[in-house]
Design a protein around this nucleic acid. Structure first.
Lengths: 230, 230, 230, 230
DNA sequence: GATGAATGAGTCTTCATTCAT
DNA sequence: TATGAATGAAGACTCATTCAT
């Protein structure tokens, strides 16, 4: 007889439901119109609650913005960690590339929905460093990748932070294009990004012991494989 | 010896002076406080003109913002095109790389010098697709680079747009970091970016006739030179 | 005996109350100072609400003006239609004239009672063809009267629109005078207008079958009666 | 050798020319958009003079408005007197009617251009009785017609003012329609107005000595003639 | 006399936030 | 606890008028 889902929801459940609806509405609206282009009234209308209710869940308009930012940042950090593992654990080049393609493909499919939000959050024009966890998260994400690059034995540069940024930039612009024009597809984007990244990394791994570097054949074959997709 | 145009700072000159003062004031204020943190009244006060005068020169607040953005974007596009030409005409690899470093260094220096303005433009949160010259400029940059890549004989991918985006992304993230933390320096950023970009491009130029590709020695030497900076 | 709707003057009732207070305040102020002489702040102050509240109920300043005009025009059109019906159904001339006098008297009394408002509406100088309900109402009045004249069997002219306009013009100028000088009184104006209108109509009903036209005696007696008022 | 038109205009002539251009521009703009819908800048642009020049010729915006009003009022008064003569001098009915048609036709053709202005001036929302000569002129025009009606021997009413207004109203609405819809044509409007007016007057001339009234045949024939136009 | 750049008080309108019901 | 009417400070924008050139 226990059908918890059919019983009327507890206070706490309703509370969470309302809060979640507000967050969802705000997320969509911020993504579309930016922080300043979104009014509290728009958010509450979309969430089917009243203006007053909003302020029971969030102190003010910035609060919901930062709540979203926080959530996204947490999520991104976790995802980023998964990626970086690739760089450090892969025993051989071929499997690294394969994993990288798989990761990017999953990544692009997954983040498409969030990319607009991500960009909005970073470029929102909200300036309140004291509360800006998002920016810190972004930095932490970069730092994590930098660490992995360092551990992977890259010694051609000591500025692994910047290298990490550049590599993240490769994906960022592709993602941005996908949101706005739908081009390229996740599958192709993954190949392009992988190819681009391994090329970039190659330029920073001249000092790697030769047994860790792919032979010329492997390199050619790998690029060949990445090309086949188009 | 009669230079009548210099004698009386005529109407036209006063006009231009006023317009310039408004642009300067706005640039500084937008840099400091962002678009939404700056009031029209602040701009006119700083420029020592009245509210009404502002609207003689700019249709509304957004107009002056876009005028500033446009000017910066135009300049960048010009500079970028100068360099991109190299991709297609450069006789030899070494000079291409040298030019690329020079371009990047100049670019990053400009960015550093006007970091606050860049930050404002990128983070303004102004969303008005109908008038967003900034966004159009970005697309034009991409298109211009894509064209050059195509002309340079890159046939490993037919999606030169995406390749262009990825390359621009490399610089974008670096710029973003410089704007916020001042790191890395323009000189180092230029080397890093160049190295990263030529690596990335190498991964897309497997089909280039061998006489166009750098020999292994040249390649190694080039990377070596790019490394020396640190 | 439970009348819950009367117990608590609910939201909806408060809403209507506020809207009505705004309309009343605006009506009075527009009457006194005209459209351009009245500020939104004046209206809200008089209605004891805040500036923001105004815009919950009316899109902008013009909207409340047109709301007032519309209401008055609607009412007048209703009243006019009631009378115009007489033109087509009236069995005999005498009762038509009696009704016409009654209608005009009521109309002119309304005008006198709200002379200032009428003056404001007529002289507001608001020119916005896209939203000018007043103008549309005027056209609707003309069309309605033209229809009735047509149905009444007037065939001396096929331009019933123009005939309608001329008849409406008779009343309009009288109204205009009453608004500004209070002269003539509603009672006399009604007789004058009726007499003038039936004279004018007589000049357009030569082809009416004779049994529908008043005999010379009836005509003379009618005019006599209309004269008695002075 | 005397070609005064080719010699360069005197100061005084240029002054008058400029003033006239300003008046013409203002007239057209006020007619189209009303007083409040017309900006001083619009007027000076149309007149090809600078903002400052405007204030050399007119004290302020209201001054040019009243200058136009004054001129129109003077003109109207003169024209009105011509008409009214018809009522008092015509020896016989038939020639009165003929003259009336001619007058109305000329009137409608002439005033079409000014009617919009006329209405704008009366309904402009400019409220400054101290300077409002136009309103007084309007009253004088009414008074003049009233006098003529009185002199013509109309004794059915003593309120010749109101009668005059009603008669003027007949033409006013027709004129207004002609401006906005182009309907009816001046020729038809003249017949319609004449017919309407003589009908209206007939209803106020029951006490005229019979030798002054048209016989039934003349009446019928007159109306017949007025009808032929359609 | 003419010009047109500059003025600035005046208004409308917005929207995050509060609070009585 | 939810509602939504009310708040009011804030800010963009206008336009008749002035005045240095």
């Amino acid at each position: 007889m226990a059908e918890p889902t059919r019983e009327r929801p507890t206070q706490a459940q309703r509370r969470d439901g309302t809060r979640q609806r507000l967050l969802d509405s705000a997320t969509e609206l911020f993504s579309q119109s930016g922080y300043h282009g979104t009014q509290v009234m728009d958010i509450v209308s979309k969430a089917h609650v009243s203006a007053g209710t909003f302020y029971r869940y969030f102190e003010d308009k910035q609060a919901i913005f930062f709540a979203i930012a926080q959530k996204l940042a947490d999520h991104e950090l976790q995802e980023a960690k998964k990626t970086h593992v690739l760089f450090s654990t892969a025993a051989d080049f071929a499997s690294t590339v394969t994993s990288m393609v798989q990761y990017y493909e999953a990544h692009f499919e997954r983040v498409l929905a969030q990319a607009a939000l991500y960009r909005c959050l970073l470029h929102s024009g909200v300036v309140d460093p004291a509360r800006d966890h998002l920016w810190k998260m972004n930095e932490r994400s970069t730092a994590a990748l930098a660490d992995h690059l360092r551990n992977a034995g890259i010694t051609d540069t000591r500025d692994h932070e910047s290298l990490a940024r550049m590599i993240l930039g490769i994906g960022a612009e592709l993602r941005f294009s996908m949101i706005h024009s739908g081009q390229p597809t996740a599958a192709r984007a993954a190949r392009l990004a992988t190819r681009c990244v391994i090329g970039a990394l190659a330029a920073f791994t001249t000092q790697l012991p030769s047994h860790l570097k792919p032979s010329e054949q492997v390199w050619a074959a790998t690029l060949q494989r990445l090309t086949l997709v188009e």
